[in-house]
Computed example of a mutant assay.
Amino acid sequence: MPKIRKQYQRGFTTLDNTPLNDEHLTWKAKGLFAYLWSKPDDWDYRVTEVAKHAVDGIGSTSTGVNELEKAGYLKRTQKNENGVFGDSVWTLSEKPIFKNPITENPISDNASTGKPYTENPQLLNTDLLNTDKTNKRETKKDDDDTAASQADENPFDVATQAGINVNSGLHLSIFLDFIKTLGNPLVCWAIRQTDNNAQHPNWSYLLTVLKNLEANSVRTIEQAEQLSAQHKQQSKQRRGYNAPQVRETLPDWFGKDYSKPSKSTYQAPDDSQDVMPDD
């Protein structure tokens, strides 16, 4: 039987063998558990952060995390304070004690922040500008109310209205991470951009928008609007540069030689046969 020799180094991690010997776990889940177990308690435990430290990608990492959670080695709870989603708390166990857990704040398919859903929610009109200089006080109050309304919005409700599924197993943890990183107003803005610009609003389009915001360190709606305007301008420039050139059709008469005949080719008319008049 082949044997292996181990060379122990510093910086090792002490880990119970239970998850490593669990034949119901994939190698991905086992390796992921060992990696998470090696990190300190104050480490940034988010799927998007974990995915940065391997080549698997977000989707594969999310699958491994969900597998550990389903097997009972991981429990994730989402803080919900005053209707605003806060940090998620990850609890790891070397024994599968969280199998079929009942979390303190379970996240259902219809997550709610305590505000009732209405069939005709109030829409924010951003197209109308107040040009009345005598109404500055009311304008400022309206802006404050709008900002407060955006802060109170529930991204899950906005996504449901747009018909985008953010609650499936692979989507939910990633969506919650973006809520934590970008905040409710910016995530809601991304959902509306997806709803307005995508022919068929879906999770893939929304994920691209959210990744773009995070990659450009966008943290406010104003910055997001500026970034969106910049992309639109660049897109217009590319379309103008790549536009096909239309060649005009020349008329039939163009190119024909209408110049007078030269002297060398000119022939005088033959009048020898003409009848002379009688005197």
Rank of each mutant, 00 (worst) to 15 (best):
P2L: 15
I4R: 15
R5F: 15
K6T: 15
Q9H: 15
R10W: 15
G11D: 12
N17K: 11
P19Q: 06
L20H: 02
L20W: 07
N21V: 14
N21Q: 09
N21Y: 02
E23A: 10
H24S: 02
W27A: 05
W27Y: 03
G31I: 07
L32C: 04
L36M: 09
W43Q: 13
W43K: 12
R46H: 12
V47H: 07
V47K: 10
V50Q: 11
K52C: 12
H53I: 15
H53L: 15
V55C: 15
I58C: 12
S60D: 08
V65C: 04
N66T: 07
L68N: 10
K70P: 11
A71M: 11
G72P: 12
Y73G: 04
L74S: 04
N80I: 13
G83P: 09
G83M: 11
G86Q: 09
G86C: 12
V89I: 13
T91M: 09
L92G: 01
E94H: 05
N100Q: 04
P101M: 04
I102M: 09
I102G: 05
I107Y: 01
D109L: 02
A111S: 02
S112Y: 00
T113R: 00
G114Y: 00
K115S: 02
K115I: 06
K115L: 04
Y117E: 01
E119R: 01
N120W: 01
L129F: 12
T131M: 08
T134V: 03
K140F: 00
K141V: 02
D145R: 03
A148C: 03
A151L: 05
D152T: 07
P155R: 09
P155F: 10
D157V: 13
A162C: 05
S168M: 07
F175G: 08
L176F: 01
L176I: 11
F178L: 09
F178P: 06
K180I: 14
P185G: 14
P185I: 09
L186G: 13
A190M: 08
N197A: 08
A198D: 01
A198T: 03
P201T: 14
P201C: 13
V209P: 08
N212V: 07
L213I: 09
N216L: 04
N216K: 07
V218L: 05
R219P: 04
I221N: 09
E225N: 07
Q230A: 12
Q230C: 05
Q233A: 12
S235R: 08
K236S: 10
R238N: 10
R239W: 07
R239Q: 12
R239A: 03
Y241I: 06
P244N: 00
E248G: 05
L250S: 02
W253V: 13
F254I: 09
G255K: 02
K256V: 06
Y258S: 14
K260R: 08
K263S: 06
P269N: 14
D271S: 07
S272P: 15
Q273D: 02
Q273I: 04
D274T: 05
D274N: 06
D278C: 06
D279H: 03
